[in-house]
Simulated scan of single mutants.
Amino acid sequence: MDNRKTITIIIFGLAALAGILLVLLLPSKSHLANIDFYISDTNNNYHYEVNERLELLINDTVAVKDKRLIWQMGNGDTLIRNTNVSYTYTQPGTYLITLKIDDNYSVNKFIKVISGSERVALDSIPRIHGVSEGYQGEELVFFAEGEGMDTWQWEFGESGMVDAYEQQVVYSYDFPGEYIVSLQTNTTKYPVKHRITILPRFEKAEELVTVDSLTMVQNDIKKHLQAIANAKVSQKSVYYEHTNYIRNKYFCMDADQVVVIVNEEKYNDFNGYCQGLHFLESNKKKRVSIDDVKIDDIYCVKSIYVTQSYIEK
């Protein structure tokens, strides 16, 4: 009986030892699951362009030390290197970049590379910035944004004629109703349009409620953008939770069509901007502070104006 117990103990001991060795020898997938990479455009204009040098940066270089990294660029090119990865695309298109780690784990990311003329075209599309709801007799501000414009013809749908000729105009409606604001510029063949609802005149207390609602939406978006900026690169679920919240609650179009203007000078689409916020966590010396957020439309956000700064850690 004692011999059987001894043999049983030895068998269990060998099995436990084999399990420990297996764990030590196999790559840690849970550890690799935190690996991600992001793509930096060297001219800092938030566009990935043809013939621009792009830098591919891994969020945790220590974790991939001594591992074999293979970069597949989505156009047939393959790079085998660990650090200082730079690449330039010569043709526009959408590419799937794949990072393979020791043939055991891979990370994928789509990238859209545009030509210089595409970038100009994207930035030149006229956009009307203005509220989608106002009050009878209220002074409403409308602003036209777009490159290359030097003439503007505004029709606010009430008078039946051209009402203004400036880039930024103030207009008040005499009667409540549904109206279509039309803007014709020298850069477009057909007018761009904006729908607005004019409500009957209310007391000032009611108007204050509307103003507060706009502030609440802007503060809500600001809160979720800050959460994206604060999330670690490994916290993908946090990133998607907050981006999807903003997208589903406030957008009426695809997220890559919503423009984000940063500090009144840099332009990006919503997806690209949020991705940049998320990966800035990898910078251990500073983080982004979302100081203020303004939107063009409380019910259908098309443009987000972000004021942000860097805080040294």
Score class of each variant (00 low, 15 high):
residue 308 Q to R: 09
residue 40 S to Q: 14
residue 7 I to R: 14
residue 200 P to G: 02
residue 259 V to K: 13
residue 282 S to A: 15
residue 8 T to M: 08
residue 204 K to F: 13
residue 13 G to D: 04
residue 189 K to N: 08
residue 171 Y to F: 13
residue 14 L to W: 06
residue 247 R to Y: 08
residue 41 D to G: 09
residue 47 H to V: 07
residue 148 G to P: 03
residue 158 E to P: 03
residue 25 L to N: 10
residue 300 C to L: 04
residue 261 I to F: 12
residue 118 E to W: 08
residue 206 E to K: 13
residue 238 V to C: 04
residue 265 E to Y: 10
residue 201 R to L: 09
residue 279 F to K: 09
residue 209 V to D: 12
residue 210 T to S: 11
residue 86 S to M: 09
residue 232 K to T: 04
residue 147 E to T: 06
residue 149 M to E: 04
residue 106 S to C: 06
residue 51 N to M: 10
residue 188 T to V: 07
residue 306 V to A: 03
residue 175 F to K: 15
residue 126 P to D: 03
residue 123 D to F: 07
residue 145 E to D: 10
residue 51 N to F: 14
residue 85 V to G: 02
residue 194 H to V: 05
residue 113 V to Y: 03
residue 73 M to I: 08
residue 306 V to F: 02
residue 37 F to G: 00
residue 97 I to C: 06
residue 277 L to H: 03
residue 312 E to K: 14
residue 281 E to T: 15
residue 165 Y to F: 14
residue 231 A to W: 00
residue 82 N to L: 05
residue 91 Q to G: 07
residue 28 S to K: 15
residue 106 S to Q: 09
residue 23 V to R: 11
residue 92 P to M: 04
residue 82 N to F: 02
residue 234 S to F: 05
residue 302 K to S: 15
residue 290 I to G: 00
residue 130 G to A: 04
residue 65 K to H: 14
residue 170 V to Y: 12
residue 281 E to F: 15
residue 268 N to I: 03
residue 31 H to I: 12
residue 220 D to H: 04
residue 118 E to S: 13
residue 65 K to E: 14
residue 1 M to L: 11
residue 79 L to A: 02
residue 127 R to I: 08
residue 153 Q to H: 09
residue 245 Y to D: 02
residue 244 N to V: 03
residue 274 C to I: 03
residue 189 K to I: 06
residue 97 I to T: 06
residue 80 I to P: 05
residue 98 T to F: 04
residue 293 V to F: 00
residue 261 I to Q: 13
residue 108 N to T: 06
residue 152 W to D: 00
residue 52 E to A: 11
residue 46 Y to E: 10
residue 127 R to V: 08
residue 13 G to T: 07
residue 56 L to C: 07
residue 286 K to V: 11
residue 163 D to S: 10
residue 209 V to M: 09
residue 21 L to M: 11
residue 295 I to Y: 00
residue 19 G to F: 10
residue 129 H to I: 15
residue 273 Y to G: 01
residue 67 K to Q: 10
residue 233 V to Y: 05
residue 133 E to W: 05
residue 185 T to H: 09
residue 230 N to D: 13
residue 12 F to T: 05
residue 216 M to Q: 11
residue 132 S to F: 01
residue 55 E to F: 15
residue 249 K to M: 07
residue 231 A to T: 01
residue 182 S to P: 04
residue 174 D to N: 14
residue 173 Y to K: 03
residue 12 F to E: 04
residue 41 D to S: 11
residue 275 Q to W: 10
residue 199 L to P: 00
residue 190 Y to A: 06
residue 278 H to Y: 11
residue 239 Y to W: 08
residue 224 H to E: 11
residue 60 D to A: 03
residue 199 L to V: 01
residue 255 A to P: 00
residue 15 A to C: 11
residue 96 L to N: 08
residue 164 A to W: 02
residue 8 T to K: 13
residue 279 F to M: 15
residue 66 D to N: 15
residue 196 I to T: 00
residue 8 T to S: 14
residue 306 V to T: 01
residue 280 L to P: 08
residue 66 D to L: 10
residue 302 K to C: 10
